[in-house]
Each structure stands twice: as structure tokens, then as C-alpha cells.
Design a protein around this nucleic acid. Structure first.
Lengths: 344, 344
DNA sequence: CTGAAAGCGCTTACAG
DNA sequence: CTGAAAGCGCTTACAG
């Protein structure tokens, strides 16, 4: 007897296996197949099993475009970050991918270059695609962007910063407290003339600056002339240059808090080059605990920030929102950790 | 007289502005509007102008899902890279975004973690979405993955490596020649016992190794005992550890070619820590010219690789493919550049 | 050069 | 708990 396929498998012109094919194979209607596959409750267990088996047998892959068109919402999740060249955000993004992909959600990376206008543009075009949800960095955006998000009704989780505003879902840590903590550490090490060197000057850097000021003021040690703020993008080179500037113009300085590890690493290397002893002559601290900071000479004291966890928890929160699950908390403070190494 | 809108703007239940609305506003049929907006030739210039004006006035944003469903192909462009934590690929990705987004194409970042199986999985799910095109890293993949790409008929451009295989579109540079060139440089600096330290051992690293061997063999200087290959992921820490190993077990070494700058930076810092003079005692060279290499002590000699250009040219090539434009070349060799600094 | 018809593959109400 | 009908917003042939 010649072998016959379990059922007649007619392929449509496109060659694609559709929900119809699955339904036919399982001998149910397409709607039931759709419901079974999506795990909608209220389908007889036996039918669910039959449909799932049929789908597996045929190698059915749902068409996201058709789903997006038919339902109110697609499977994309725009993730807007300032920069990809900052390892910080790459870590966040990797974590987001890891959580979202297994749930059939597709992260869409958008880069704003720290420009609220650019973010607004991106948001406009992404929201027009009716994404499932949105992940945004921080709270600093144009009024129009805020409106767009609100009007869309699309679930949104904010990363990196925290707020108490009701109904706002966010996951991060207190940038200000972290800036305070590392400054406090330098004071406890006996430092008195503590400088702050920063670049980029995005909102989170300014929050760290605020923590630095609050701490030094409380200790009666604040001196505005020890703040070196550059709007240029952060880099090791710039860190070295700014440290040189500082040592020349404020020779009395005995510690430096760099707002980011790349600046601090550059500072450490410049100190080495100039023969400035760290931590004897000046103590050095960074922020974020980026790759390489533990390899410096001396190893860099810094603040370890929970960026992977931010991505994971943020994506998880969005997932709950999409499922209308009750949230344990709408604002997740993931904290930070002081990492004391040889440079302070 | 009360103000009246230019035409009656009835919104559909979804609230969305559709092609229909634009067509009505421009007083043409939806098909003509569609053609005008997509810049399909064969539409009267006047109508095109009218449609575009109407679209702008209404703030029309086309629905990618509907477009994808109706046409054979969507607007997504999966970009598969091994790792996001390697700055190399982040640069490639940023360049790809810059080129693709203005053309209405949406890059989808996929991370394979150097695992062909993982790549195959990603490919399977991405191709089921009928993307407009695909960007893949290198040529090392499973047979099934190869088949998937071929069977899909979806335009594909390969990044980072080159091949002469007909009909294959690729953009990169010769990893082997680059490995050869930096080794040659070390020979020309008078070095005779040149080691190779590598991690990750992905296909491109192995190609660089081949260039290193070819060069040393030609000079009669090859010594297999000077190769240190570790399958671990690349990092500064590992670079330092491997250099220490090397100095202990092969004290006769007088130069090291690290397969990547992060390893080399770690090596340089380890040398500093150990009091090993660079370049007097050993010359050090890296690969890729990553951020920070110019800040090292001494600054790192390396090979600058054209990763931004690879992203740009690769995306541009895909764009041409999508438009059925004739390609100037199907294989673009973007070359590399020796950057000689203090470490050699 | 322009348009009327049909359909892409799925899901949302609406019935039973 | 299951299904027949209609439609999401666009584009692809097919006519004229």
C-alpha cells in the first residue's frame, strides 16, 4: 500500500502553513485553533491538545503581521535608550531580549542620542505600529512625547530612574543616593577636597551630581570650584584630559568622583602617565563598574549598578502589564552596591 | 462664516488615519494613493504631489503590519550578530540603523552568542515573519540555516568576512591578511619570538591566527609553542592572565599579537603591574582599535577595522538588492589600517 | 496612467 | 464551549 499523509495537505499559493491548515489537520474551526494556540481559556482540553499537536506536526509559525493587523496590538516592544556605545545600555538591552523573546515579543532597539526631539520622533513612528508595550529610559522627554505615550494607552515601563508618581511603572535605583554614597565613602577615607568630574550631563549624571553636593554640603565640605562638568560625550580620553585640567587648576584636590567608569579609567591612566600617586595623592572613584575597572592600576573603586536586573525586572513588569496581572509593585528600587578597590 | 475643514474628515472606529482617508482627502483612489506614497513610478506628478500633501496634512503613518500582510514582504531586517558586549558589533549595528531607518526599514537585533544552533533558531523565527532582508555575520553556520536562507529567497548580505562565491553578497575585509599585516609589522620591528594570544576562537579569530602563522612561516620564525588559544570569552582580565602564563612558560617571547584589543589592554595593564617593559622587553599589538586603546600606557599598536563602514555599506547593499538595483560589486573589501603606537 | 476587486492571515465581537 | 461572518489596512494582479 502506498503511504498516505494523515490528511490531505494542500498548500496555499504562498506556500505558507496557516492557521487554516492547522484547523483542518486538527478538524476544528480556525477560530478554535486560534484560541487553543493562544492559550485562551474556555477551550476543551482535548481540542487544545489536538490543535497543538497539529500545529507541531505541520510546523506552523503564526504570522505576526496578520495577528497585529487583526488584533489591536502587535508583538513589538520598542526599547528606547540614549546610546549603544555605553556598555550600560547594552547590558540592559541584552537582559530585555532574554526575557521578552521567549514570550513571542520582539524588542525594537531605538537610539535617541540623548536628544528628546529624536526620542519624540522615534516614539511617534513606533507607536503608530501599535506595539505591545514600550520600554523607555528615564523621565526626561518632551511634553509631546509624554502625550503620545499617554494617548496611546500602550503599557510603558521606565528604566534606570525612579518616581513615586502614581500609575507610573519604573525600575531602577536612586542615582542621587548612589552619588551620595560614593562621596560619603571618600569622606570616610579622610578626603576633604573632593572633586566631581562629569561628561555628557544627562539627567542621571546630574542626579549623581546632586547626591555629591548634598553629601559634601552636609559635611561642610562643598566647594563649587571642584566641579568639572563637560557636555562632551563621555570617553576615557576625556576623563584623562579633565583630570589633568583639574590637577593644574585645583592642585589642592585630594579625591575625584568621576560620574562614569570610562572617564575614571581614563583618569587613572592619566594619573599613571603623570606620575600622580593613586590613592596616596588623590583617591579616585567611578560609577557603574564597567568592564575593565577591576583591571586598572590600581583597581577602580566604583558603584556597581544593577543594569542586567533593570532589564529583566523592567521587561517582566511589562509582561505582567500585558497580561493584566496585578503588580507586586509599580516602582522597583533595585539599589546599588559600593565596590571598594585600590583607588580609594 | 464658520470655518469648515477642507474635506469631511470622518475617523474610523479605530481612530487611525488610513490610506483611505488620505485618498479621500486627495480625491484619488486608495490604490493611486498607495502608489504615490511608495514612489512607484507611473503616477502623474500632480497626483503624487496632491497625495503627499494630503498625507502630510492628515499626519498619515502607514501601517507596517498591513503592508507586510498584503505584500509578500515586511519591513523588518533581522541583523544577527554574535554578541552585543563586543563594541565591534555595536558599531556595526549603529551604522546599520542609521542607514536603514530613514528608508522605513526596521532592524531587528538578534544575538547568537557564537552558537550556530541559536542562530538557526533565530533565523527560523525571523524568516517566518517574511522580513525585507537579512544581515548575517560571517559564513559559519549550520547547513539547515544555510538552507533556510536560500529557500526563503530573502535578500541577504554577509558582514565581516569576504568570499568569492558567486551570488553571495558580502562586505568586510580579509581577517587573515590583517593578521598577517600586524605580524609582519612586529617582524619589521625586529621581533623574532612573536606569540599569538587569542580567546573566544570564533571563525574570524582563527582566520587572524592563520594570517599570523602564514607570516611567521614565511619568515622561518613560526613556533607553535608561542600560540596561546583559549576558548573562554574575551576580556581584559583574561588578556592579563594569558600574558602572565605566557611570560612564565615562554620567557623567550619578545612580542605578542593579541587577537582583540580588550585582551591586549588587559595584557598591557598586566605588564605594567608586573614591571615588564613594553615595548622594550615585549612588543604588544592588538586588533580592532577599540575605545581606550589609544589611552593605554603605552598606547596600543593595533589594526583599525572598518566596522562602521561595514554596517553602512552592508545596509546600503541590502537596500540596492531590495530595489533590484544593479550592484557595483557583490563583495566589498573595505580593508583595514595598521595603527602603530607606542606598544611596538 | 488610474481604478474595482480580491485577498494577505489572523482575531474580534456576535451568535448559538 | 464552539463557530460563521466581518474586518484589520494595505497591495497585488487584472482590467481599461
Amino acid at each position: 500500500m502506498p503511504p498516505t499523509p494523515p490528511t490531505e495537505r494542500r498548500r496555499r499559493p504562498s506556500g505558507r502553513i496557516t492557521l487554516q491548515d492547522v484547523a483542518r489537520e486538527a478538524e476544528v474551526s480556525p477560530i478554535t485553533a486560534s484560541r487553543a494556540l493562544r492559550g485562551e481559556r474556555g477551550v476543551a482540553a482535548e481540542l487544545v491538545a489536538r490543535v497543538k499537536a497539529a500545529a507541531a506536526r505541520l510546523g506552523y509559525v503564526p504570522d505576526p503581521a496578520a495577528r497585529a493587523l487583526a488584533s489591536a496590538r502587535g508583538t513589538q516592544v520598542p526599547v528606547l535608550v540614549p546610546l549603544l556605545s555605553n556598555a550600560l545600555f547594552v547590558d540592559v538591552i541584552e537582559a530585555v531580549h532574554r526575557v521578552l523573546l521567549p514570550h513571542g515579543l520582539q524588542p525594537l532597539i531605538g537610539v535617541t542620542h540623548y536628544d528628546p526631539m529624536e526620542e519624540e520622533q522615534l516614539l511617534r513612528s513606533y507607536l503608530a505600529q501599535r506595539p505591545a508595550g514600550v520600554l523607555l529610559t528615564g523621565f526626561d522627554r518632551t511634553e509631546a512625547a509624554r502625550q503620545l505615550v499617554a494617548a496611546s494607552g500602550i503599557p510603558c515601563v521606565y528604566l534606570m530612574e525612579l518616581t513615586d508618581a502614581p500609575g507610573v511603572h519604573c525600575v531602577g535605583f536612586s542615582q542621587q543616593d548612589a552619588g551620595h554614597a560614593i562621596t560619603q565613602h571618600l569622606i570616610e577615607r579622610g578626603r576633604r577636597r573632593i572633586a566631581f568630574i562629569a561628561a555628557q550631563l544627562d539627567p542621571r549624571v546630574l542626579q549623581r551630581a546632586e547626591g555629591y553636593r548634598r553629601c559634601l554640603r552636609a559635611a561642610g565640605l562643598y566647594d563649587a570650584r571642584l566641579e568639572l562638568l563637560s557636555p562632551q560625550p563621555s570617553s576615557m580620553r576625556l576623563g584623562g584630559e579633565l583630570l589633568e585640567d583639574l590637577l593644574r587648576t585645583r592642585p589642592e584636590v585630594d579625591a575625584v568622583f568621576f560620574c562614569n567608569d570610562d572617564l575614571a579609567q581614563g583618569g587613572l591612566l592619566a594619573a599613571l602617565r603623570l606620575g600622580v600617586a593613586v590613592p596616596q595623592r588623590i583617591a579616585v572613584a567611578g560609577f557603574n563598574d564597567l568592564s575593565g575597572s577591576d583591571q586598572m592600576l590600581p583597581p577602580l573603586t566604583t558603584v556597581r549598578t544593577p543594569r542586567r536586573a533593570i532589564g529583566e525586572v523592567g521587561a517582566g513588569m511589562l509582561l505582567s502589564l500585558l497580561r493584566d496581572e496585578p503588580l507586586a509593585r509599580s516602582s522597583a528600587d533595585l539599589g546599588f552596591e559600593l565596590v571598594v578597590r585600590g583607588s580609594s
